[in-house]
Design a protein around this nucleic acid. Structure first.
Lengths: 238, 238
DNA sequence: GTATTATGATAGTATTACTATTATTATTGA
DNA sequence: TCAATAATAATAGTAATACTATCATAATAC
């Protein structure tokens, strides 16, 4: 009983610690949106609006109407909508990493750990985990539909130097290490992981919009199964 | 000797046939750019300019300056720059399919055929095959950097109905069939192929801009090797 | 209770993404 | 060969986008 309570405490501390840690590098914003009420309204409403309009048709003007604040106030938080998108994706990847860490903490077999982690990377987010002011279900949709745009720009090298993609790199690094923990000789852990992460998102997008490009079945989750098999076959020595 | 000449003739007929076949569905354009001098200048210069500026900063205005024709003339060929991008990617996938068909025609082992096809899907385009007025080396760069934007929009479903993505689907269907020719029991041929195609492009992009997300080595082509192994391991009936 | 900071209100600008109109060539076809 | 047709050029214009600037006001901190 005491052990259980202790475990629970460890959980909560980690959760609290990590939830507080979803503070992102200052290179992403002009003013930390997590530090004010307006900032939080910008984040939560931009998620809804980007999902509704798509990133191309989303503008700060429209967002300003939605939150009843002047456009110029939004510009005090983010240089432009592209950096806001990077902020959202960074938050997302940090949140995914937090969930990976949490879900793996009481597993002591490396293969099982990796398996659990792949689950989190490839499964869709179905319920809002009610992480403060961010709707994770909608954010997950945005990531599937829009996240590739965050790094497919001419500014990618400059932004990369500024640290804009650290959250994603951190997650990939962690998972690459988890692969190496299972098979220390495996040569391409980063390629494998990004193939899985981006591939799973891509397949989800295809199954909704371009079903001829995939083989998903409505009733069962073929995507998770496919990428789990992929990882297993690739890292099995021999 | 006669056999050789006959083979050559078959080659040329196929080449001519396919090269002529890189006429794309009329849903993509208002006026076929392949039918006029101006249309061809629009295509060839847009490839160069999109590569230079990136798709976001590319505009019909800037293109019109480059080709010394009014902006309104470009609008007579394409409704907007997004449909021009779809046109370019469609042309690209049709061209890739043409190369796949050609490279595989004199191989009679299904596994070797697939292997050769994966080569074409995953290798970068190094030399301009001088296909008329289109620079395939630069086009390949655009596809790697920008092609995901062609279908990651709110209009994807409408455009899909108009046939905008038929070239890509046709290629994927052909390769899925090639997988089934090797292993008729394999369940996810489309997923596997899109994972390979998009994955290879993604890894090339990462190796240039976000190297922490991949494991490529400058000296050798790890990307081709990685995805070949992936396909082989996935379809081998264990 | 003043200094600081955050937000609101308003205005303005260059560029983008188009549409429209008319003039001028080039091509076709009778 | 001349008229009709089609294609392009030249020019103008508009609403929206992507910002920047300024000043007033409200909230908070010391």
């Amino acid at each position: 009983m005491i052990v259980l309570l202790l475990l629970l405490k460890v959980y909560l501390v980690i959760m609290r610690d990590l939830s507080i840690k979803i503070k992102l590098t200052p290179g992403l914003y002009l003013k930390d949106p997590d530090s004010t009420e307006l900032g939080k309204r910008i984040i939560s409403n931009s998620i809804v609006l980007i999902n509704e309009l798509g990133f191309e048709k989303f503008t700060f003007k429209k967002l300003s109407k939605k939150i009843n604040s002047p456009e110029s106030s939004i510009y005090r938080y983010f240089e432009n909508k592209h950096l806001l998108l990077i902020y959202l994706t960074s938050w997302y990847w940090s949140w995914i990493e937090y969930r990976v860490v949490l879900s793996v903490i009481n597993i002591n077999n490396n293969l099982d750990k990796l398996d659990k982690a792949i689950d989190i990377l490839t499964m869709p987010v179905n319920e809002d985990k009610s992480f403060s002011y961010i709707n994770e279900v909608i954010l997950d949709k945005i990531i599937i539909a829009e996240s590739v745009k965050s790094f497919h720009t001419k500014e990618v090298d400059v932004e990369n130097k500024k640290g804009c993609f650290e959250s994603y790199k951190k997650l990939v690094t962690r998972l690459a290490q988890m692969i190496l923990d299972v098979n220390p000789d495996y040569k391409y852990p980063h390629m494998l992981i990004t193939t899985v992460i981006e591939g799973a998102h891509q397949q989800r997008y295809f199954s909704e919009h371009l079903p001829k490009l995939t083989d998903t079945i409505k009733t069962e989750d073929t995507i998770v199964a496919f990428y789990k098999e992929l990882v297993q076959k690739m890292i099995s020595s021999k």
